[in-house]
Design a protein around this nucleic acid. Sequence first.
RNA 1: GCCGACGUAGCUCAAUCGGCAGAGCAACCGCCUUGUAAGUGGUAGGUUACGGGUUCGAUUCCCGUCGUCGGCUCCA
Length: 603
Amino acid sequence: MDQNNQERYEDSELYRIRHSLSHIMAQAVLEMFPEAKYTIGPPVENGFYYDFDLPRTLTPEDLEKIEKRMRQIVAGKYDFVRKVVSADEARRIFANQPYKLELINDLERGETDEHGQPLDEKPEISIYTHGNFVDLCRGPHVQNTSQINPSAFKLMSVAGAYWRGDEKNPQLQRIYGTAWRTKEELERYLQMLEEAKKRDHRKLGRDLEIFIFDDEVGPGLPLWLPRGGVIIEELEKLAKEMEEQAGYQRVRTPHLTKEDLFLRSGHLPYYAESMYPPMELEGVRYYVKPMNCPFHHKIYAAKPRSYRDLPVRLAEYGTCYRYEKSGELFGLMRVRSMQMNDAHIYCSEEQFEQEFLAVVELYLRYFALFGIEKYVMRLSTHHKRGLGKKYVDNERLWLKTEEMVRNAMRHGGVPFVEAADEAAFYGPKIDVQIWSAIGREFTLATNQVDFAVPERFNLTFVNRHGEEETPLCIHRAPLSTHERMVGFLLEHYAGNFPVWLSPEQVRIIPITDSHNEYARQLEQEMRAAGIRAEADLGQDRMNAKIRSAQLLKIPYMAVVGDQEVNSRTIALRRRDGSRQNDVPVQAFIEQVKERIRTRSAEL
RNA sequence: GCCGACGUAGCUCAAUCGGCAGAGCAACCGCCUUGUAAGUGGUAGGUUACGGGUUCGAUUCCCGUCGUCGGCUCCA
């Protein structure tokens, strides 16, 4: 959409407008609550926010007042004036603002920026003033508030947010706003949000009868309806085909295990927070599994392995349970029971690069099949401060495996970004990041290196010199979990699944009930050909039947009347509204079968 | 888990100031026999999420629990 998308956001006019509006909002809030403490307020993707420590909770009416006052300030045509100050001067100016003082102290030490991120060099301390409002800020801003369009911004919501993003810190009130250059841009953005809601998998999942949640079953525990069940079956079929070709072997493992296994694997020391509490029977504690890996390790260890056997690739669509905190649940994208497209690859160090890349290539094949284009591959690495807490305590191995992954990606020519402090507890990983309809970021596929756990399980193979060696383990889930994958695909396709994934592929619609018999015959014929077809023999008129099929986003409607009965044809209506009359039944069946066989994206 | 908002029929949503809880769609029973997005008449459907409290009387006000949503934290 943007001609000059080469320009960094930080350098853009929009960034300055949003940043300035966040100051103006802070001014309005401080006028309303003179005792308020203000913290930070940066521009974000579609607007800006500001975090405040306030004497009371904000109401929607407050937002209206604040927004109104902001318009007045904008109309006041104030200049934004930058001034570099010493740390002492800054401390004097913000003497009553504890959060600002903390920021100033950190800046003075040259350690961290306003988000608590480490800084490379010691920064200048600057303040920006407009009118009588002053804020600690590095800018940039508009020169004058007249450069802000008063009808191109809107305050959106209030939310809780921890000071410096740490849940141990006090919780602040964050006001989100959106801001654009023109009123039209704002309206377009608001309309886009409306459109996104229609694509939301939570809405589509209900409308298309894919899944439900039931209060009595529990939060984060989805029930797959028959139509959702079909999609899952198709995904598993796909995974099994691909994995068989790629040399994986399928295994099956229980949902429960004794405590000992998760002590050995390190899940209890590093991952207990996300696990359901244990159940105790006859003095033994059992846990429901949050991951499949320990079981696969046991299968690997079930017999002696030679270097000739490697790589060993064990695959399982395993069902796992994780106790996600209640506020973290989000439709199908974040649940408590999930089935993972899981596999563990045990290989030697020499085999690592090839195996790792083969997994990345597998992702790319899947993504091409689904037409997924908007994603980012992210190398998630450890952070020193988490060693022994979030991460297995062996810095040398962390650095080594991270470099192995980096090299594999570079040699494979696969672009990626790096994110520190995002690794799994047992090793670095390549995550594939995607965005939900409403803009939330999720990891879809993942490819993780485990340098720690094979040793804990005493996994070995005998190398060509007759010595015992510890294999590396790659954990991978290219198709994510069924839950997140189906949630994502619902939004990705906006419910218009390709034929092979469509829960119902053909809806047969008789024009009057005298054509019911023919419709029934067609249904049988198509089903015999492996097509998911259903004849609609209900009381509705043809038009109503077409409408229901259309609302369920069924790819093909076969409308049949006298003409079709006589010539053994169908009148084809596709989901996109296109039509084709007099299609011979056999020709139609063959074409649909071909689309299914090739998993074609074509309608 | 934390902050805030919300919770009425399967779905979408009404119900003035505290005064008998309502509509459309869907479902069910009929009539119509129809050519590409809703033919038509009727019937049924509710402990207003749950549990307390205030009140002559609570969907409405208060408290608690559960759930959902927007964020934060966390994550496949």
